[in-house]
Design a protein around this nucleic acid. Sequence first.
DNA 1: CCGAACATGTAACCTGTTACATGATTAC
DNA 2: GTAATCATGTAACAGGTTACATGTTCGG
Lengths: 175, 175
Amino acid sequence: MAKQRLTELEGAVLTEIGHRGNDTSFKVRRAFERSPSSSWSGSAGAVYPAIARLVDAGLIATAPGDTRRKTRLLSLTEAGLAALEAWFSDPLAACSIGADPFRLRAGLWETLPAGRRSEVIAAMITTVRAEMAKLKGRDDLDPVERIGNDLAQMQQEMRLGWLIRTKTGRMSGCL
Amino acid sequence: MAKQRLTELEGAVLTEIGHRGNDTSFKVRRAFERSPSSSWSGSAGAVYPAIARLVDAGLIATAPGDTRRKTRLLSLTEAGLAALEAWFSDPLAACSIGADPFRLRAGLWETLPAGRRSEVIAAMITTVRAEMAKLKGRDDLDPVERIGNDLAQMQQEMRLGWLIRTKTGRMSGCL
DNA sequence: CCGAACATGTAACCTGTTACATGATTAC
DNA sequence: GTAATCATGTAACAGGTTACATGTTCGG
């Protein structure tokens, strides 16, 4: 009955329901769709089955909402709240490295010939700046999401700093 | 025949073969197993089928190696090299946000009662320091992987800074 | 000789993606 | 009225995880 360990998606679903006021499956799904992170597609085929699993595991309770639209209001059970806290308090899971597309690719840019490398680095700088502007423009965030958004901005700033250091370091060597 | 778009795993496989001297399926797999990132399991059921797909797509060429052990030596075809470069040069893919377990959880720590929150933050600080030490201890890295390792360290340093700022900020309010 | 590491793969299962299907409500 | 949004799901497919199966080579 009780789930062994929550996936990232399941933890995020419990977060949406427990701390972000998204009380229907649709709102949870839409929240993922609007997330700036590329790892959340918010596809119905992922979110609805995940919620169904969590209901089966006794972590989410359902109550009838607007009956004409057959909406189901979702809330965390006590077990769900405990599972969520266990999920987000686990240091090994929280502090692990994760999947960063930038980190995965950055080493390869150095293997390019100098001209092409400058082009690619310049394109990356432009794109990081654009992504950062998007993150800064988000203003309808609750406190929980605000912190995630701040951390995402800090990561983009870190990338930008690295790109600029790399560029100037290499360029000065080429002149 | 040609693949439409490479997944992160497929791009990483081509990287291992093209720029890290891992010329057999087993070495590629072992490289993923030893990666500090939690997103690579290096499971045979992921790596071998991925390589098979890339061979089918004409991106990887195979040559017989030690025949007794039926090893196959892998190398990138011209198409494979081009696909790899397209993969790592795409700015939108490279600069997207990715899946960060820390960012996903950090907002929730603030929802804990003060005592529990201090405990959790302290545990996170300890774990981030330990992870950072592991990253610093890795010394058998080629140039491509070295850059990825540096970026991972920078991210852990960023996390540590955030944790300490959060802790002191909150603690001073509590005193 | 025996265990660890090398070397390659498969099968069952679970999860996520894409695309489809259905229908109600709201804004113009 | 009609297009967008709300609202809930399913089916086919792709991909990853776990566990298993098989055999070789090397160090002690």
